[in-house]
Simulated assay, not measured.
Amino acid sequence: MNAGGDLLHVVTSDEPARGRAALGRALIWGSAALLAAVALAQAGQHWGWWDLGLTTWRPTLYAYLTWAVALCWGQVLIRGEAGRRALFVLPAVLFVVSLTVFPLLFGVLIALSDWNLSSPTGRRFNGLDNIRRMWTDPFYWNALRNMVWYSLAIVVEYAIAFGLALLLHAEIRARRFFRVAFLLPLMLSPVAVSWMIGKSMLEPRFGPLARLGRALGWEQPSFFGDPLIARLTIMAMDAWTFIPFMMIMLLAGLQAIPREVQEAARVDGASGWRGFWEVTFPLMLPVSVTAILIRLIFKLKLADIVINVTAGGPGGATDTVTSFIFREYRDRSNVGYGTLLAMVYLVLIVIVMTVLMKLAERATRPRT
């Protein structure tokens, strides 16, 4: 030991004592056992197994807070300085978990219940009855099939957005004006679009597009009477709203391509269509994949236009999963069944997006 008192260069051990580590583990596991016991007790009372007088879920919340504090303290006791560094992140992680895990568990509990707001009996546990009902519900499967068609329309939207991005990237007159003008649909709310176009311009009697159709020989123009025309009209309205979003992302990608690369391609003889396929499109592939995936996420949430314009009609031809779930809540007050449909749809979205992201990563991976 340095007798001169040079404390600056004294090295202390970061290993905590065995007693402190044992105390930390006891705190963590003891609080975890308390949390599990309280949650089990409240779940048992909720399902009618026993009556402990627990009217709310606050005891479980308090037990979770106790476990969170014990976990943070236990990390310091067990890991020493490393545990103190973990405290900069651990409380935020626990807070996020409390905002995601508990609502998810509560949603699963509701999904396995028969809960109709118009019923005087209230909520009761019904096990897998909602799943069996979903499996034989033709309207839900029809909405899923519609979502496949709506999602495939992204290919056409991408082509149009890419063409507009190339046009606005070129040296044309009033380029800045057209960039702002093409972004106007994106600035509008889908609800405003549905009323402005679906309820006004496409009105079958007095709408301007209906009058134009009669002038061109369409005797009884009805944009939402025929199932195929109604679905295509909804696709067109949704595409008009969100094509500018893809366009602006693709335009940003085009502007990020070095001009030297394009000039070198022209020198090598790759101009026009060949230069696009062999130079521009491969360089734009990462941006294109990102734009398509983000657009797909928005497409899977499509509901505003359908709810306000057609309410899923005619005969469910324009229904989306989200609009169908919305009507289960609003029109039928069926909270339990609607929550199950939403949970199943969430699982399907997670699976589809995970697979697509894996495929996108493989497609955009540099080839050596």
Rank of each mutant, 00 (worst) to 15 (best):
A165Q: 00
E263M: 07
L293H: 13
S333C: 13
A161G: 03
V287R: 00
E203T: 00
A36C: 02
N126S: 10
S271L: 11
G24Q: 00
Q220P: 03
P366K: 06
L251T: 00
F102L: 12
T121L: 08
S200R: 12
R79H: 08
T364V: 15
K301W: 05
A3I: 10
T66F: 12
V155E: 14
E81P: 15
A311T: 07
A32W: 02
L186W: 15
E15A: 11
A159M: 07
M235I: 14
A161K: 08
P59C: 04
D268C: 03
S118Q: 11
A43G: 02
D6W: 05
P91T: 11
V69W: 08
L340K: 11
R327I: 09
R123D: 04
L90R: 10
L117T: 01
A311D: 13
L359Q: 06
F298V: 03
G275F: 10
A303T: 10
V93N: 01
G83M: 02
P16G: 06
V352S: 01
Y345L: 13
G213L: 10
A63R: 00
V309P: 00
L35I: 06
V352N: 03
P258E: 11
A159E: 07
P366C: 03
V93R: 07
L300Q: 02
A264S: 11
W47R: 14
L228R: 13
W57Q: 06
S151T: 15
D137K: 10
T12N: 09
G74P: 09
V148Q: 13
F177P: 04
G24R: 00
M246R: 09
P204D: 06
D319V: 04
L356F: 06
R58P: 14
Y150A: 14
W57F: 07
W218I: 13
A33P: 13
L99S: 12
T364Q: 05
M249S: 00
V261F: 01
K358P: 01
P59T: 03
N116M: 10
A174C: 11
Y150N: 11
W135T: 09
Y329R: 04
R25E: 05
M201A: 08
T241Q: 09
I234C: 01
T100N: 12
